Simulated scan of single mutants.
Amino acid sequence: MSLSRIRFLASAADTAQSALAALVARYGQAEAADAEVIVALGGDGFMLDTLNRSQALGLPVYGMNQGTVGFLMNAFSIEGLLARLSGAERAVIHPLRMQALGRDGVVHKALAINEVSLLRTGAQAARLRISVDGRVRMDELVCDGAMVSTPAGSTAYNYSAHGPILPIGAEILALTPVAAFRPRRWRGALLPMGASIGFEVLEPEKRPVNAIADSSEARDVLRVDISSARDISHTLLFDPGHGLEERLLSEQFQ
């Protein structure tokens, strides 16, 4: 597929801004309404932000690494971009939908491409009650936090918390505790993609908890409900042989 009308976006980093100037000089800069593809220059955090901000455009996004980790990005090069875009592999992912009720009565709504996490903010461990599809599955999890991760986000915070890496095509979500104290040996659960997961914060005055959907934070929450937003999809582009499926596999054999 020919993708020649490119909308370039870049993070505020000096290297990304320099790359932006060079690419625009070579390939031009399409207006958002006329573009066929978005090329994002930065790191994984900027890619997540770009996907969220460009959702209404419905355009595929091709990232080039001008950040640190770059798991969601391709290698940077000014040369041959049109050929790389035309031959790119596509990966379609769905974000998580978070609805969090704060102690102030305000309901916070956000989308997360990687994960929704609940984290303690005080000196004492959080106490969480977990339900799946309206049924309480764990009366009390005492922990530093917990998260629900998508397959695309399973190599990020989820993996650092010893959660499983999920194949990109798996219809599964990972529910992973952070430093579980009770039950101490609990390592989390694998849930169907269509599951609705609820977290109730116990003793919120004594053990406050924040909820974070990627980088969107709701402070001092009472309850958090999470589900897969199947009505929303993002298309990422990768160089052949370096797509998300291959990266997820490679991560497990390092």
Rank of each mutant, 00 (worst) to 15 (best):
L236N: 08
W186M: 01
V209A: 00
R230E: 15
L41G: 08
K109T: 13
D231S: 14
A16T: 09
E79V: 11
G145F: 09
A211K: 01
L237D: 02
L41H: 04
A195D: 11
G87P: 11
L175A: 09
I113C: 04
S54K: 01
D220A: 13
A10R: 05
A211S: 04
A174P: 01
R53E: 13
S216V: 12
L23I: 12
S250P: 00
A213M: 02
N210M: 09
L119Q: 14
E203L: 10
S215N: 13
A152M: 10
I113W: 09
L175F: 15
L111R: 08
A100C: 10
T176F: 06
V221D: 02
A88E: 11
R182N: 08
A33I: 07
A100L: 02
T68P: 06
E200Q: 14
S117G: 02
A10E: 09
K109H: 15
A123H: 12
A161G: 02
V142K: 05
I38M: 06
V92Y: 07
V107Q: 00
D214H: 06
V106Y: 05
Y157W: 15
G153K: 03
V148D: 01
P204L: 10
S233M: 07
L202A: 03
S77C: 04
A211E: 04
A91W: 01
Q66C: 14
Y62A: 13
K109E: 15
R84F: 04
N114R: 02
L72N: 02
L96N: 07
S216Y: 02
Q252D: 02
R97L: 14
R184W: 08
G153P: 11
V148K: 03
G80Y: 02
Q17G: 05
S4R: 14
I197S: 00
F253S: 12
T176D: 03
A56Q: 13
V69C: 12
V107Y: 00
H162T: 12
L9I: 13
G241S: 07
V92C: 08
S117M: 13
H162I: 04
A19Y: 12
L20H: 13
A25W: 03
E246H: 14
S117H: 10
A112M: 12
G80S: 11
G80H: 14
R90V: 09
A30L: 08
S154G: 06
F181M: 09
F253W: 13
I212D: 00
A22L: 13
G67Y: 12
L85E: 09
V61I: 15
A16E: 07
V132H: 01
L173I: 11
N65D: 14
A32C: 05
V136F: 07
A30Q: 06
V39T: 06
N52A: 13
G28C: 07
G241H: 06
A110R: 09
M73H: 01
S86I: 00
G102N: 04
